[in-house]
Design a protein around this nucleic acid. Structure first.
Lengths: 201, 201
DNA sequence: CGCGACGTTGATTTGCCTCAACGATTGTGG
DNA sequence: CCACAATCGTTGAGGCAAATCAACGTCGCG
């Protein structure tokens, strides 16, 4: 155990615990699996990815909190995703095609992540095919969540979207600033504040 | 070749052509692959899935056009997806968990589809593992498209969303009624009409 | 022909944004 | 340990994009 914080071993066990929800790995497979990831520590506000760069890694969050956001030419920005413990994040389009990213990803808290390169991920699929199943399942869940979000954005007014967010992500709503949540929900911080006032009664 | 329309053989070749974009199948594998699908013909306005039912199939569109939409308690509805030739559709959440669907799917035109049951899909993954790769890749692309749609909905005004839609789906915008497109884009038909008038100059 | 589906137009309303100013809290350097 | 800046949330006035409601025109079709 490392004095300076959680050891890499503990990081790995966090990732393996996650994987075990989807697939069973032998001791040997598990070791190979985690060996393809590299650990990285982020300070608050440090970037994991900047728009324009190529997204080289798929990222697993061990602890802390990241945000992925899109910056418009006008300068305003919109949060696409929060990622806390046990979440994955990346600019999937950039990662998949190895093209410049349109998303920025940075840390809202000091954060530990494990990252895997595209090459290694392809290698992993090849060496341990059932890992491909895991990623397919993860993607399925993420896709469903995105679809639900599209539906909500289409038909729910601001207050309902906020209430749904509170219910769905209680662990996120308690740790990230309200302005960030407003951005995620597609409204201004001022308006979210007004909504909260109305909810007080 | 069947007198009453495209033969099942041609349907299958359409599906195999699609699959070949992602993976290579031997003759034998290809035959097994398509044998797991059943063909179905839909009349205009016929339902493929109704909310509340369990979504038993993943559906590949051979020709025609489907829409997947969500109906609110108030009665208003929102189109989540159009599916034309070479697209897949389902209520993925319902299919995945075998829980009641929240989406309705029906035909905007007479439509031919090929459907695979969950059991057979799982069997397919097992017998021909590379098919799992294909579905993972399809999902990745769909996920990316959904993410882009979320971004667009968050930051683009109605007119830009409409223009982006025209550019992205020219083959859809020419065949489905404008009111349907308005629903997909999250605006009223009246407002879309106004936008089109403004674009006339 | 007459009905239903579809698109258009205009008047009015409203949900949400913009802009600007003002507390409260945090944190950081002197 | 204090002072000051930065961050964060709140409040209010005014404006705009888009919804609502209602009426009307135009097809295609039974």
């Amino acid at each position: 155990m490392c004095i300076l914080g959680q050891s890499v071993l503990l990081m790995h066990s966090s990732l393996l615990a996650y994987a075990s929800r989807y697939i069973d790995l032998t001791q040997e497979e598990a070791e190979y699996f985690v060996s393809l990831f590299r650990h990285r520590k982020l300070l608050k506000r440090q970037f994991l990815l900047q728009a324009g760069d190529i997204c080289r890694y798929e990222t697993f969050v061990v602890n802390g909190c990241l945000r992925a956001y899109f910056v418009e030419p006008s300068g305003s920005f919109h949060i696409v995703q929060f990622a806390v413990e046990d979440w994955w994040t990346s600019d999937l389009n950039s990662f998949w095609n190895q093209t410049p990213a349109i998303l920025n990803i940075d840390a809202l808290e000091p954060t530990d992540v494990l990252q895997i390169e595209k090459e290694n991920l392809d290698r992993l699929y090849k060496e341990i095919p059932k890992t491909e199943r895991m990623f397919r399942m993860m993607l399925t869940k993420a896709f469903i969540a995105h679809q639900q979000r599209i539906i909500d954005n289409l038909c729910k007014p601001a207050m309902e979207r906020y209430l749904a967010f509170l219910e769905k992500y209680p662990n996120i709503s308690q740790r990230v600033p309200q302005a960030q949540i407003a951005s995620y929900l597609g409204m201004t911080p001022e308006f979210l504040s007004q909504i909260r006032r109305n909810l007080m009664r």
